[in-house]
Design a protein around this nucleic acid. Structure first.
Lengths: 131, 131
DNA sequence: CTGCGAGTACGATAGACATCGTAGTACGGG
DNA sequence: CCCGTACTACGATGTCTATCGTACTCGCAG
């Protein structure tokens, strides 16, 4: 899948000047592909929960570099990928940055109230925050 | 099930210091020791979610042998232990059996609505019976 | 074009997790 | 007292997870 997709990408990039934002494609699950288990698994990690917490607190889409996570850069990438592949966040490229946003709408439609409950519970316990 | 023996059991527990039944006491986390992450982790497994689902559907306390899980006996024990140690269920010995009950009260106090959301979401997806 | 900053890809790895089978303990009934 | 039922304890094992460092690509600003 390597060479062909690379050429496709390059062709598309030189063809349409507007494809800047979505030149690099990121695989997201559709709403129907989101599994409860996967979401719970994704939320059951302190680092990822911190990301979700901060995303929920901010209406803006945040780049990965915004977060001050207690792990290395490559681990950060890993956690963002877990969140994206489980359907919790949506990621879009914007130039050299990658913007992250909660998929609140999808999650609310699939699991009404779940995200709110988890965030409320997290805020209530708040022990994972060591700053 | 003789309700008299249940009362005897309770009386003996509050009166007698150390009996054989006490030797089989099971370690449960106190309400304050229950961690959100642990609960999410516990719920993020299909087998355990099935247990929680059936416990929630039944007002009775259910013995481990009640459940028809797609795993071996020792694995079943393992999953029940995970649920107990994360604070999701409470287990009590009753003769040779071990009764399991959801800690709904504690969970509701700590994470209001969470269990209901997860169960509703689970019911909505329902596709967990892939065995 | 070149260099930088943001993020990825790719091993490597230690530890956790889910799984099993076997052997054992505890309780209750014949 | 022995046996069956219910569950546990333990060791083995394969897989998944979270972590890292290094080398890389990509887009933007000189």
């Amino acid at each position: 899948m390597t060479e062909q997709s690379v050429q496709e990408e390059q062709a598309r990039r030189s063809a349409a000047p507007e494809t800047r934002a979505d030149a690099r494609r990121l695989p997201h699950p559709t709403r129907l592909e989101i599994r409860l288990e996967g979401v719970l698994q994704a939320l059951a990690d302190p680092v990822r929960l911190q990301v979700v917490r901060e995303l929920a607190a901010d209406t803006e889409e945040l780049p990965c570099s915004f977060f001050d996570l207690p792990v290395s850069k490559s681990t950060t990438t890993y956690h963002f990928r877990v969140l994206r592949e489980s359907g919790v966040i949506r990621q879009t490229y914007q130039g050299t940055a990658k913007l992250n946003a909660l998929r609140e709408e999808d999650l609310e439609a699939l699991f009404p109230g779940l995200l709110g409950c988890v965030l409320a519970a997290d805020k209530r316990q708040g022990g994972t925050d060591d700053a």
